[in-house]
Amino acid sequence: MVTALADARAVAETVTDPELPMLTLADLGVLRDVSEVDDRVVVSITPTYTGCPAMEVMRADLDRALRDAGYRNVEIRTVLHPPWSTDWITDAGKRKLAEAGIAPPGVAPARAGGPVPLTLGPSVHRVRCPRCGSPDTEEISRFSATACKALRRCRACQEPFEQFKEI
């Protein structure tokens, strides 16, 4: 059984994100747990964003990958707490993002208790251009083609690029 469990985890770790196919769900920190309970595989995943429409595809992909590997009793569970953070993206995941032209996230903002501070000015953190490496970049929009990314522009090479925004 121990061997089978390791296999199930290895299979689940091969499943990629439907929007970012260069990353696995494990790279993204979305895959929270793989365990075997009473002869079935239970996989726990957590949504990156509350409304993330890719969740259903992730569930279907995990289910099919495990069934193709011979597991007949597969359960995919959603874990809502603690909420996903970009800090959970692995170093390999960050490297793959950069290689795909998406600037990886910095450290997610830490928040003490109490009211959430309002930010009226532009974001101050430096983001390096994933194409030319210049730190001279500016934010165009905090929202991009998917909920998890912001849109930026490099002032050195003039290219626009996406950044995985810290959350």
């Binding site: 964003y49 509350t50 707490h81 603690p82 909420p83 309002l118 009226l120 905090r142 909920a147």
Partner: peptide
């Protein structure tokens, strides 16, 4: 636990939403 989880996630997301509206208002 469900409300707490929805809230914890929602706070992170809505911080961006409020900043968006506030910056446009200014």
């Amino acid at each position: 636990p469900v409300l707490a989880a929805v809230a914890a996630k929602g706070v992170k997301e809505m911080t961006y939403h409020r900043d968006y509206a506030a910056r446009w208002a200014v």
